[in-house]
Design a protein around this nucleic acid. Structure first.
Lengths: 123, 123
DNA sequence: CCGAATCCTCGAAGATACTG
DNA sequence: CAGTATCTTCGAGGATTCGG
């Protein structure tokens, strides 16, 4: 645990926790992971449609990041028009499980969080 | 799980998962939580020193957010000079446990993530 | 000692247009 | 269909100053 604190403090060093948190905390990664986890395999535009309001550029960026870290696999079929299929890797499914655990906890705490916010008076 | 996806998609609605992720994914919240979890109780400047390179403003902002959601408690002593002590609430300790679980998983995946990054060739 | 107020920087995210 | 290339926007985070 001290390890985590130290790693996170010196941001020049490698910090797997921070890496993983960064990966799921950007705007579209978690949604992409959940969509792929639900559907198994999705083509680019199907995934885009599933998420809804993501721009083409941001979905591409998001998927490249997830692919680079090994959470998502990308298969290109040499066809015309091109077909590219995305799916979660085994590690990607593990990441989704972690996120779901966190989600479960968060949902359980929701009433207390709401309550705390109401009590809190700004200024 | 569908719930999570739907909640996250419509960003106008309440999404506890996103809330919690946002809370731990900003630059200083997790470090603050870990520092408080380690030391139990810390005064403002002690916490600042513990974290290291956080600005006064950002530590204040971070702590207010954590306090608002009920993860951190803040006790003000009517002294001169003023003394303010921070510590994790019970829910805050729960949040730290969640983060530590995620950290544990992340550390286990580290070799595979590193490996995947090396294989990935940009352009 | 513990902040609040103000101003500024910089990178994530979006809009738009183009391409193999 | 599945991207890339540019340009722009917007807000988190930082520097600095002032106050109880």
């Amino acid at each position: 645990m001290k390890l985590i604190l130290d790693r996170a403090k010196d941001q020049s060093k490698l910090c797997p926790v921070r890496d993983v948190i960064n990966r799921i905390s950007d705007k579209w990664s978690l949604l992409s992971i959940l969509a792929l986890g639900t559907h198994g395999t999705l083509r680019f535009n199907a995934l885009k449609k599933e998420i809804g309001d993501v721009s083409q550029r941001m979905l591409t960026v998001t998927l490249r990041n997830l692919e680079e870290d090994g959470f998502v696999s990308r298969k290109i079929y040499a066809e015309v028009p091109p077909r590219v299929e995305y799916q979660l890797t085994e590690m990607g499914q593990g990441l989704m499980q972690q996120a779901l655990q966190l989600a479960d906890w968060a949902n359980n705490q929701l009433p207390e969080i709401i309550s705390s916010r109401k009590k809190f008076i700004k200024n």
